[in-house]
Design a protein around this nucleic acid. Structure first.
Lengths: 214, 214
DNA sequence: CGGTGAATAGACAGACCTGTTCGTTTTTGT
DNA sequence: ACAAAAACGAACAGGTCTGTCTATTCACCG
């Protein structure tokens, strides 16, 4: 109770989570508290009162900002996804080199994410696992998030002059999801290295048969 | 209410789920109903009364067999894992050929799993997503399940005369988890094909540098 | 037939959860 | 400084959840 959630991300360098951003008004306090609790303890398992206690906010204030818990969940997922993507793609934009370098750097960035003490898996993967049937807003939010990722992957594949751009994106999606789940379950960030090695083999196999840039 | 859960698996050929096995006494009816509901609608989202209604069982009977809902969840996960592994490894044992053939066949079997209408992702992945913090029994059940899988993968890697057996198992774990999650989210079983292609490249890379069997 | 153990229906307790309401206090903009 | 807006505390309503208990009925088996 006495500590905020700054210790989730002490130096701010890994501010991929919405919960780690500074707060001012009640709405942001609510979002931060809800983000932290939803991502760490699950969506259904987190009650409104727990969120209110952490945010130090009155219940009426929550329901002035959000019509229901479901709407709060949707807002949290959207904000969490946006913050994560800014962090993730921002890191990748700093990579100097070719599209191949950026695609391989994906797994360096992922490993940093996995190593963060506040890592409890991808919120979207976890949310879909919980709400697969019944909550369409959650599933749509997850689809949107994955679409953004796929779009970025396809852009890299185009720059690679890959023959089948969609297939490249699908293969990387498998590697990324697999690394996330394996790291989450084993609490071992170095699964990112295994995924990276597989990605390198895959990229090699793309270049070799066609050798269109020679 | 009028239909049982036989339509989950009409011909019985895909009886990977405990919920699809025939029932006799009340305990098995409860396990079947709980399996189905937990795997399809989530663990926290499924109430005791819903399970009782589906199993056509009195509440006292449930609490005569299981001390609590948590214990029921643990029992369901254990049974579900056991049934799934029997089905999965049984299918793979029928594959004629080398360890390489069996390792690639993993993704054929996975694709059949993904294509089943009763597929809602891996129950263990979903359970860990829901109970990551707090429920140790669930996490231990998931670890045990993954251990069985890793053991099998390592056995194949040994037969392959791979240099680093553990690394082979880790790489396949990434591919399997990734295929499961990607297929679950997109409802597209063919992600198994992408994982399979990556696995084939990986196995090729193992054989090429050492060529120890020449 | 009779007895034993298990399953049944159903009411109940107690806790928890979401969401509402109301009067008061604090903050904020001008 | 003043007025409007927002947040506060706290109680309350209605529902649902897990788990307990009781009294009755069923099934099996000697």
């Amino acid at each position: 109770m006495e500590d905020g959630l700054q210790n989730l991300c002490p130096n701010g360098s890994l501010s991929w989570s919405f919960a780690a951003r500074p707060s001012k008004n009640a709405r942001e306090r609510l979002m931060r508290a809800a983000s932290y609790l939803f991502c760490n303890h699950g969506f259904a398992a987190t009650g409104i009162d727990t969120i209110l206690a952490r945010a130090e906010t009155a219940k009426a204030t929550l329901y002035n900002h959000f019509a229901s818990k479901e709407e709060l969940i949707a807002a949290v997922l959207q904000a969490e996804g946006e913050t994560w993507r800014e962090w993730f793609f921002g890191r990748l934009a700093q990579v100097e080199g070719s599209a191949r370098d950026r695609l391989l750097a994906v797994f360096d960035v992922l490993q940093d994410w996995f190593a963060d003490p506040g890592f409890y898996g991808c919120p979207f993967i976890n949310a879909v696992a919980e709400f697969d049937t019944g909550n369409d807003a959650v599933r749509r939010a997850a689809e949107l998030h994955k679409e953004h990722l796929i779009t970025w992957l396809k852009a890299q594949a185009i720059e690679l002059q890959a023959r089948d751009v969609a297939e490249v994106a699908r293969s990387f999606a498998v590697l990324i999801d697999g690394a996330i789940v394996a790291a989450q379950h084993s609490r071992d960030p170095s699964f990112a290295r295994n995924a990276q090695a597989l990605a390198a083999l895959y990229l090699d196999s793309l270049g070799a048969p066609s050798s269109r840039n020679g």
